[in-house]
Amino acid sequence: MQKGNPMTNREKYAAAFQTTLMVEEAKLSNLKYQDVSTWDSVGHMALIAALEATFGIELHIDDIIDFSSYAAGQAILAKYSIRMED
């Protein structure tokens, strides 16, 4: 990321996955819960905390449970007015 060029929501979303679950960017789009050993119930807590901190939101408990894939998460965040740019 260059100075003066803020990250887009999509980049922030991907970065949260990459740093907490240590998954390469190329594998993100099809990633589902428990596809990788780092996305277990423990990794899930780290991921949720990172997303809440990144976007300044409080995810509802039902949404935390339903957050079962990279794609599903984007739809959930949309409910909190966090939209991924095209």
Binding site: T38, V42, G43, M45, A46, A49, E52, I57, L59
Partner: peptide
């Protein structure tokens, strides 16, 4: 919470991740 979660060494301790998760900002708010 943020400091602990940023440390990969804590992942082997689910109880510790649980604590860090509990004291995250969103939950305390």
């Amino acid at each position: 919470s943020q400091g602990l979660l940023a440390n990969p060494a804590i992942r082997t301790y689910p109880d510790l991740v649980g604590f860090a998760y509990w004291c995250r900002k969103a939950n305390l708010q």
